[in-house]
């Protein structure tokens, strides 16, 4: 009940802020809520919009798969190998904080325009948090659980599947949730810089051609979709954390 009330309060707050920005900046920068909802509904009924959405989703799918699989694998390896983990963790953390925008020109040169650049943008944003969460989950497994495994005569295989895996799973899910959001962000940025297709491209193209209505509507759709996805993942995350 309070959850519902909180959500409603947040939505109301956003609408208020939106109206405020609209009043301040005028319709050369942003359209008002009502008009945007109407145009967004219209966009959702159009085939060319869905082609762009499809382009974004497929790039996002590849990027997320790479972030998740490679991120978890690297995190496990680094976490299990204590020394390399101790060396890698601060390096990854500082890599994570560098403004990745400085890498874009370089990445464009390497990957060119198109899907692979978008995917690469998604991966550089999304993979590091997955690695870091996995690594710290493995490193922080309580010693007493490993001693318990010995005391209960578990085989190495049983220790891995029945003890290590469930012990690290909640942290990995948290990492994936953050990786999910950042991968999506990376893909959208990639589309703004390095593509002629996708929702990111629609936004930047709308800005360049002063199509305020379309830009605002696409932003609304993107935000709504990512908030919904994040909400679902957060619920999963909470359940995993008992």
């Amino acid at each position: 009940m309070t959850r519902l009330f909180d959500s409603l309060a947040i939505v109301a707050g956003i609408l208020l802020l939106w109206t405020g920005v609209f009043e301040y900046a005028g319709d050369s920068a942003i359209t008002g809520p009502l008009q945007t909802f109407r145009f967004a509904a219209n966009l959702l009924g159009r085939a060319d919009f869905w082609q762009h959405a499809q382009a974004t989703l497929s790039a996002f799918g590849y990027a997320l798969a790479i972030s998740a699989v490679a991120g978890i694998a690297l995190g496990l390896i680094l976490g299990l190998h204590r020394f390399s983990g101790d060396v890698a963790e601060p390096m990854l953390a500082s890599l994570y904080t560098i403004p990745k925008v400085t890498l874009y020109p370089l990445m464009l040169l390497v990957f060119g325009l198109g899907v692979s650049a978008k995917v690469a943008f998604g991966v550089i944003h999304g993979m590091i948090p997955v690695i870091l969460f996995t690594l710290s989950a493995v490193k922080n497994i309580p010693q007493v659980l490993l001693r318990t495994a010995k005391a209960l005569h578990l085989t190495p295989m049983q220790t891995a599947t029945h003890l290590l895996a469930p012990a690290v799973l909640p942290e990995i899910i948290s990492g994936l949730r953050i990786g999910f959001a950042l991968t999506f962000l990376g893909v959208l940025i990639g589309e703004m810089f390095a593509s002629q297709r996708g929702l990111g491209f629609l936004i930047i193209n709308g800005i360049n051609s002063h199509d305020v209505k379309r830009t605002t509507a696409v932003i609304l759709i993107v935000i709504t979709a990512s908030v919904a996805a994040n909400g679902a993942l957060l619920a999963l995350d909470r359940r995993a954390h008992h």
Binding site: P142, A151, H153, Q158, H162, A167, H242
Partner: peptide, 25 residues
């Protein structure tokens, strides 16, 4: 059989599954 000083219960299992853990393995 050993009972450790630190809490060694498995947070991802119910009490019943915790107790049955060793026998199941």
């Amino acid at each position: 059989g050993v009972v450790f000083q630190e809490d060694a219960s498995f947070p991802w299992l119910s009490v019943r599954d915790n107790v049955a853990f060793g026998l199941r393995r």
